[in-house]
Simulated scan of single mutants.
Amino acid sequence: MVNAEKREVIERYVDAYNRFDVDGMLAMLAPDLLFENVSAGQVNAAAHGLVEFRQLAEQGASLFTERKQVIKAWSFRPASVLVTIAWRGVFAVDIPDGPRAGSALELPGESEFEFDGARISRIVDRS
């Protein structure tokens, strides 16, 4: 798969994420997907396979009234694609000991994507 094709798959995945379209996200993923979300160096969410990923994605979507990832930079590596991301979300619910509903959060981060054929097989989100 050439870099332009990888870029298109990632852009379609991010577009689906931004639209809260879980089915659209899943369409870009390999059945045996490995997903990790890493915050401050600690894995705080993980999924193996589409069933677990769907559960995480639906849970995450329910926390926000709006959310958006904007890709700021691309780095094509031999085994992966690293994208620098600006992320913004507005909470739909009060988070225990955390932000209140209506609060906005902005985070810089990066996502690393690996591929199996034309589908994403591994995602590591870091913030």
Score class of each variant (00 low, 15 high):
residue 1 M to Y: 05
residue 2 V to G: 14
residue 2 V to S: 08
residue 3 N to K: 13
residue 3 N to P: 03
residue 4 A to S: 13
residue 5 E to D: 12
residue 8 E to M: 06
residue 8 E to F: 02
residue 9 V to E: 01
residue 10 I to P: 00
residue 11 E to Q: 08
residue 11 E to K: 06
residue 11 E to A: 04
residue 11 E to L: 08
residue 12 R to E: 09
residue 14 V to N: 00
residue 14 V to Q: 00
residue 15 D to V: 00
residue 15 D to H: 01
residue 15 D to G: 07
residue 15 D to A: 13
residue 15 D to C: 01
residue 16 A to D: 04
residue 19 R to P: 06
residue 20 F to S: 06
residue 21 D to H: 01
residue 23 D to N: 08
residue 24 G to Y: 02
residue 24 G to K: 02
residue 24 G to T: 02
residue 25 M to I: 10
residue 26 L to F: 03
residue 27 A to P: 05
residue 27 A to E: 11
residue 29 L to K: 00
residue 31 P to G: 11
residue 32 D to F: 00
residue 32 D to K: 11
residue 34 L to T: 12
residue 35 F to N: 04
residue 37 N to W: 05
residue 40 A to D: 15
residue 41 G to E: 02
residue 41 G to A: 07
residue 41 G to Q: 06
residue 42 Q to W: 09
residue 43 V to M: 02
residue 43 V to L: 04
residue 45 A to T: 12
residue 46 A to L: 08
residue 46 A to R: 11
residue 47 A to Y: 01
residue 47 A to H: 10
residue 49 G to F: 08
residue 49 G to Q: 01
residue 50 L to E: 02
residue 50 L to Y: 04
residue 50 L to F: 02
residue 52 E to P: 02
residue 52 E to I: 09
residue 53 F to T: 02
residue 55 Q to C: 07
residue 55 Q to D: 15
residue 55 Q to M: 08
residue 55 Q to N: 14
residue 56 L to E: 09
residue 56 L to D: 06
residue 57 A to F: 11
residue 57 A to E: 09
residue 58 E to A: 05
residue 58 E to P: 08
residue 62 S to H: 15
residue 63 L to W: 15
residue 66 E to M: 13
residue 66 E to W: 12
residue 66 E to R: 13
residue 66 E to L: 06
residue 66 E to A: 14
residue 67 R to I: 09
residue 69 Q to V: 13
residue 70 V to C: 09
residue 71 I to Q: 08
residue 71 I to W: 10
residue 72 K to L: 15
residue 72 K to T: 15
residue 73 A to R: 14
residue 75 S to I: 10
residue 75 S to F: 12
residue 76 F to G: 07
residue 77 R to P: 05
residue 77 R to K: 15
residue 79 A to R: 14
residue 79 A to D: 15
residue 81 V to C: 05
residue 81 V to S: 02
residue 81 V to Y: 06
residue 84 T to R: 08
residue 84 T to F: 10
residue 84 T to D: 14
residue 86 A to K: 07
residue 86 A to I: 10
residue 87 W to H: 15
residue 87 W to K: 09
residue 88 R to W: 02
residue 90 V to Y: 10
residue 91 F to L: 13
residue 91 F to I: 05
residue 92 A to S: 12
residue 93 V to L: 13
residue 94 D to P: 11
residue 94 D to I: 14
residue 96 P to A: 05
residue 96 P to T: 10
residue 96 P to G: 07
residue 97 D to C: 08
residue 99 P to T: 14
residue 99 P to C: 13
residue 100 R to G: 08
residue 101 A to M: 04
residue 102 G to F: 01
residue 103 S to A: 15
residue 103 S to R: 05
residue 104 A to M: 04
residue 105 L to T: 07
residue 109 G to T: 05
residue 110 E to W: 12
residue 111 S to G: 04
residue 111 S to F: 10
residue 112 E to I: 11
residue 113 F to W: 04
residue 114 E to A: 10
residue 115 F to L: 03
residue 116 D to K: 12
residue 116 D to L: 14
residue 116 D to T: 06
residue 117 G to I: 06
residue 117 G to C: 05
residue 117 G to P: 12
residue 118 A to G: 09
residue 119 R to N: 11
residue 119 R to M: 09
residue 120 I to R: 10
residue 121 S to N: 04
residue 122 R to C: 12
residue 122 R to N: 14
residue 123 I to D: 10
residue 124 V to W: 04
residue 126 R to D: 00
residue 127 S to E: 10
residue 127 S to A: 11
